[in-house]
Nucleic acid binder design. Structure first.
Length: 523
RNA sequence: GGCCCGUUCGUCUAGGGGUUAGGACAUCUCCCUUUCACGGAGGAAACACGAGUUCGAUUCUCGUACGGGCUACCA
């Protein structure tokens, strides 16, 4: 085998935002390149001007950046095979298309798109399939069916034409796919694909081959939807006499919708209730905004970890992988052949796992920023001190899957409750409990340190004095302090709040609760 | 329709001629616990079907079914 340096590429067309299937393709190409000490390139395949969407290219680059997929070479970073945008390489492709004509492996075709459409419709009406191929081309309008004089006349008259691949009849085409192994196709089933369009742009079929060879790509990694046209591509390599530099193909299994049928598509995202895009995307035409992993609060580590596992496994029970670990472990032998149904629930679990792996101080600084934003706390507010925030994070994080849940789930750590869970109050409150809480306030008043264990002890002692089981009043204590029926560990919470704050909240809470009880009793 | 690819718990998957078919998510039960979580223990849950090869097939082969992809001067 050759000693070539491994080079892979991701080659999307800028027709809109990249969806997670695209990111996964890029990821696998990146992981494979890095695993083998090679390069990962980004090439933009913008040969179809009609489908060009402004902003899509920037979106693709930003998505890869966010995901931690580093581009060694290509659009946005440059490289020795510049340019990396196919529209800027237009003239390169024509040369190869013409070379194929010279060698007798391609031909000019003058049929109008509308004419072919009409034929197609007609044949379909007869329940047959039309293909522009060895069986039909001699009856169509091209340089094979026409005399060379006629052909030259048409060309010099500037008549529009396309260049088509002349697919030979009755051949077997074999190749080895890195994931699927030996694959065989019959040439009679492949149509004479357009290589160069009438606007002078190449089609994907020609362009990707020319670029892959010129850019010294060793492994062409793409979605399974390309498998049916792969034999045509093999033929083109052969006809261009590039068999020795032909990259190896790997056709990746598709990402399927979680329910229902079909592959995941850009339109599914918000319909299915989970994002299909890495980053937020605003449709330039409709202004519609699509949700995304980054904006929903997913960590790129979790996002990438989840994507890697959709179709690949490490062959071990380890599930949490950093990018570096993915690189170390990636191989095509462990890529599954069947399509993977996307599971939004497991994605959340990955994020939860990565959240728990973050350091408390890192999470505390995130919390600090959102508190400043949410409540406009001053910088010298003691609720923004590192020690306090780290303590909050420790209590909060085990019950969160996302950073952005900290405030939502722990608001009461920072501000006194504005209301109290009515269900708990109406169900559990008894008039004599007021006495208990007052005695508890008394009991803790001499405390200097107000630690969780001290308050807990005093709470239980006070309860005993009142012939109460702690369980009778614990839930009420929580609701009075936090307003909520559920939340972080109670006595550590009290310790965090501090004696003064706890006293205030108890007094306010008792007043509010008693007033509320009194007014409901009246009505 | 034609062609191609695929098929292990609901989902992602491990495995591979003889296994109690393993793990994870989700789900259920129990334990911990004032609560919600976390954590711990356990449960339910799969080799699509039919032939063939074989002493033995979930594993190999062939059919069928089902799923997916492709069938453009789109990628």
């Amino acid at each position: 085998m050759s000693e070539r340096r491994v080079r892979t590429r991701f080659a999307p067309s800028p027709t809109g935002p990249l969806h997670i299937g695209g990111v996964r393709t890029a990821l696998y190409a990146y992981l494979f390149a890095k695993r083998n000490g090679g390069d990962f390139l980004l090439r933009i395949e913008d040969t179809d001007q009609n489908r060009f969407v402004p902003g899509a290219e920037e979106y693709i680059i930003e998505s890869l950046n966010w995901s931690g997929i580093k581009i060694d070479e290509g659009v946005s970073v440059g490289g020795k095979f510049s340019p990396y945008r196919q529209s800027e390489r237009k003239e390169i492709y024509r040369k190869y298309a013409e070379q194929l004509i010279q060698s007798g492996h391609a031909y000019y075709a003058f049929d109008k798109a509308e004419e072919l459409d009409a034929i197609r419709k007609k044949t379909e009406a007869e329940k047959k399939t039309f293909a522009y191929d060895s069986t039909s081309r001699m009856s169509l309008n091209n340089s094979l069916s026409l005399s060379s004089e006629e052909t030259e006349k048409k060309i010099s008259a500037n008549e529009h034409y396309v260049i088509r691949l002349k697919v030979p009849a009755n051949q077997e085409i074999n190749f080895t796919d890195l994931i699927r192994g030996a694959v065989t196709f019959h040439s009679n089933l492949i149509d004479d694909k357009v290589l160069l369009k009438s606007d002078g742009m190449p089609t994907y079929h020609l362009a990707h081959i020319v670029d892959d060879v010129l850019m010294e790509i060793t492994h062409a990694i793409r979605g399974e939807e390309w498998l049916p046209s792969a034999p045509a591509h093999i033929l083109i390599y052969k006809f261009l006499e590039w068999e020795n530099v032909m990259p190896q193909y790997a056709h990746l299994p598709l990402l399927l919708k979680p329910d229902g049928n079909g592959k995941l598509s850009k339109r599914d995202g918000d319909k299915l209730g989970f994002p299909v895009f890495p980053l937020e995307w605003k449709d330039p035409k409709t202004g519609e905004i699509s949700s995304s992993y980054r904006e929903k609060g997913y960590y790129p580590e979790a996002f990438v970890n989840m994507l890697a596992f959709l179709g690949w496994n490490p062959g071990s029970v380890q599930e949490l992988f950093s990018m570096e670990e993915l690189i170390q472990n990636f191989s095509f032998e462990h890529v599954h052949k069947a399509g993977a149904r996307f599971d939004p629930e497991k994605t959340k679990w990955f994020n939860e796992q990565w959240l728990q792996r973050k350091s408390d101080s890192e999470l505390a600084s995130v919390l600090k920023a959102s508190l400043k934003k949410e409540f406009n706390f001053n910088d010298d507010d003691k609720r923004l001190s590192d020690a306090f925030l780290i303590a909050c994070v420790r209590l909060l994080k085990v019950r969160c899957q996302f950073e952005n849940e900290f405030i939502e789930k722990g608001k009461y750590l920072f501000v006194a409750p504005a209301s109290y869970d009515e269900q708990v109050i109406s169900k559990k409150w008894k008039p004599n409990y007021a006495t208990f809480f007052e005695q508890f306030i008394e009991a803790v008043s001499p405390l200097q340190t107000f630690t969780a264990s001290e308050t807990e002890t005093l709470f239980k002692e006070t309860a005993a004095k009142n012939n109460l089981k702690p369980g009778e009043v614990l839930q009420l204590f929580r609701v009075i302090l936090s307003g909520q029926s559920a939340g972080v560990d109670l006595f550590p919470m009290a310790e965090l709040l501090g004696k003064k704050e706890v006293n205030e909240r108890l007094k306010n809470g008792l007043t509010t609760v008693q007033n509320a009880i009194a007014s409901t009793a009246k009505s």
